[in-house]
């Protein structure tokens, strides 16, 4: 996702048949979405009693995120606005039940029946007005209101989101809190432009048992960019000054370099072979 697909076309148009296939056959995307889903499931903090739960995957697409739920033994409903994405999910024989629907129209589900919800890389789509009748604030309101109602008390909803800017992040958060949710933002790897991931962790009803913190990079400089806002976990801005975005003193590490080299090789580039010198620091005389 180099440019922002949300800005190109409405989701049901952007995710047409060819995009749906392209999306699902990219091993890079498959891997990233699986990792994000694992993390979201972890943040859902379901009781550790071995009983499968009945979960919701909002903006489920071709089922990449839902598969993580199945692998962990859960039953799920996936909702998506793109028929093409859902068709790919059917072809891939995902185990969840699929619904074609628009989250911005609210969820037609009974009160208190769902044990938890995840949504991976989808909710930022609601911030765009794709039709003249669309008002992002109202669509977010309808969505979060209906989600709040259908979740059981104490249940959580975890959203991995790519807000375009601070205003979008705040709009999403504000609508969630107004719907009655508690909770806030968890930021993993806040100092890395590439790895940085945001999860909105919401709790329904009872007070959350402290949301665990995001993964931090080792030895980061002191952290003045993360203001405590209304008792939420670090809300920070993506567009921080460049200096801040350079990561830790140790550099990116050997593993990272090896992965990048491998990626480059797969693209057919001529890449130096790996040796014990790979990713070593140069002596200062260089």
């Amino acid at each position: 996702m180099s440019s922002r697909p949300e800005l190109l076309a409405p989701p049901e148009i952007f995710y047409d048949e060819s995009e749906a296939r392209k999306y699902t056959s990219s091993s890079r995307i498959v891997e990233i979405q699986a990792r994000l889903s694992e993390r979201a499931l972890e943040l859902l903090a379901l009781p550790d009693d071995g009983v499968p739960r009945f979960l919701l995957d909002i903006g489920c697409g071709s089922g990449l995120s839902g598969e993580t739920l199945s692998e962990n033994g859960h039953q799920w409903i996936g909702l998506d606005i793109s028929a093409s994405m859902l068709n790919v999910a059917v072809e891939r024989e995902v185990e969840g039940d699929l619904l074609l629907g628009d989250m911005g129209q609210g969820l037609g589900l009974r009160a208190g029946v769902i044990d938890g919800a995840i949504s991976i890389s989808a909710v930022q789509w609601l911030c765009n007005a794709d039709k003249s009748s669309h008002e992002p604030r109202l669509r977010l309101k309808a969505f979060f209101g209906s989600l709040y109602r259908c979740l059981s008390r104490g249940a959580r909803a975890v959203f991995q989101v790519y807000p375009e800017n601070i205003a979008q992040r705040e709009l999403i958060l504000r609508q969630a809190l107004q719907a009655g949710f508690g909770g806030g933002l968890v930021v993993d790897y806040p100092h890395s432009t590439k790895k940085r991931k945001e999860f909105l962790v919401l709790t329904c009803g009872s007070v959350p048992t402290s949301i665990n913190e995001g993964y931090k990079e080792s030895c980061s400089e002191d952290d003045d960019s993360e203001d405590e806002e209304n008792g939420m976990v670090g809300v920070s801005d993506r567009n921080r000054p460049r200096k801040k975005q350079r990561t830790n003193k140790k550099g990116k590490g050997r593993e990272w370099v090896l992965r990048k080299k491998e990626q480059s090789r797969r693209k057919g580039n001529d890449v130096p072979h790996d040796s014990k010198y790979t990713a070593r620091k140069r002596k200062s005389r260089f």
């Binding site: 606005i81 068709n87 074609l100 629907g101 129209q105 039709k131 309808a142």
Partner: peptide, 14 residues
């Protein structure tokens, strides 16, 4: 269709 209910509402139903 194909097991998937189409729950999309028309604009005047929202």
């Amino acid at each position: 269709n194909k097991g998937i209910p189409n729950m999309l509402l028309h604009e005047d139903e929202v």
